[in-house]
């Protein structure tokens, strides 16, 4: 299981990276932490002719707390964000969800932006970004940057709004809203596996934003009224996502988890406490 041959580039600036992306088009792939891409390369499920390593770009390595969001640069690993002091206070959902990403060892190298760029429909970070209504910042070879809302960025299985010559430079997670509670639940086959269903919730006094990962071809988030019985809305949500059977779980099971875990999550309960404590590390 060895990768096919490719040219290796280590651009030293964003501009240079974008120029290379433009020049080589679909034959080029970016690598940051490589925790998804390397496995795919090893299995030869991708055989790009050019690999662009963005590790050499200095100014992508930052976590900044700004007025209304936490900005995470493309060089930041998942472990670094998880260990960012005050994460639980700034973006509580990340503190809850990130321990569920792979394992200690993959979080050490996997980057936050890399996971967003990969757009795996079962991955935790895209779900968090979608649920919180965050943004992705992209920059092209002319140095122009644009911001894309999460819901527009994720377009399908491993498919995003990123254009050929663009580099994701940063993702922005909205800061905690005063009075809002953040909850996260995930059901996976094993510790660290991709979610069969992952649910993220932002619970305000009168409304709930519920995000669902692992079911549709992208993370999905919905707003529900807080005090009404959510059953009907959850059932509609469950049926709307095109759940499918795979080797590990049926579509009906996925829908059931959305209905039942969704209700639990909205109501809040002992499991959420349990969760918050069980996965620190």
């Amino acid at each position: 299981m060895k990768p096919a041959a490719f040219d290796y580039w280590r651009p030293s600036s964003r501009r240079e990276a974008c120029e290379l992306l433009h020049e080589h088009g679909d034959e080029a792939r970016l690598i940051a932490g490589g925790q998804s891409l390397m496995a795919v390369l090893n299995m030869r499920l991708a055989q790009p002719k050019h690999l662009l390593d963005i590790a050499g770009i200095e100014d992508l390595h930052y976590i900044e707390r700004r007025d209304d969001h936490l900005a995470v640069g493309a060089g930041v690993t998942q472990a670094e964000l998880l260990q960012y002091p005050g994460l639980a206070e700034a973006v509580p959902l990340l503190a809850l969800a990130m321990p569920w990403i792979g394992h200690w060892q993959t979080r050490n190298r996997g980057t936050v932006c890399g996971s967003i760029a990969h757009a795996d429909p079962s991955a935790e970070l895209p779900l968090c970004l979608a649920t919180l209504g965050g943004q992705v910042v992209l920059e092209n070879r002319r140095g122009k940057s644009r911001r894309v809302m999460a819901e527009d960025f994720f377009q399908g299985v491993l498919t995003t709004d990123r254009r050929q010559d663009e580099l994701i430079t940063e993702v922005r997670f909205p800061l905690a809203r005063p009075g809002a509670e953040y909850r996260f639940r995930e059901v996976a086959m094993r510790h660290g596996d991709f979610a069969i269903v992952a649910l993220a919730a932002v619970v305000d006094s009168n409304r709930v934003t519920l995000g669902v990962g692992g079911v549709a071809d992208r993370p999905v988030s919905r707003e529900l009224a807080r005090h009404a019985d959510p059953s009907e809305a959850l059932n509609a949500l469950a049926w709307s996502l095109g759940a499918e059977d795979d080797a590990h779980a049926t579509a009906a099971y996925r829908r059931q988890l959305i209905r039942e875990l969704g209700r639990e999550l909205i109501a809040g309960g002992p499991r959420d406490e349990e969760n918050a404590h069980a996965r620190q590390g």
């Binding site: 069969i196 009907e232 509609a236 049926w239 590990h248 779980a249 009906a252 099971y253 829908r255 059931q256």
Partner: peptide, 18 residues
């Protein structure tokens, strides 16, 4: 005995598709 299989054994009575 995967979670999906066990949950199915417990019985999933699905509300109709709206």
């Amino acid at each position: 005995l995967t979670p999906s299989k066990v949950r199915t054994l417990i019985g999933i009575e699905e509300p109709a598709r709206p």
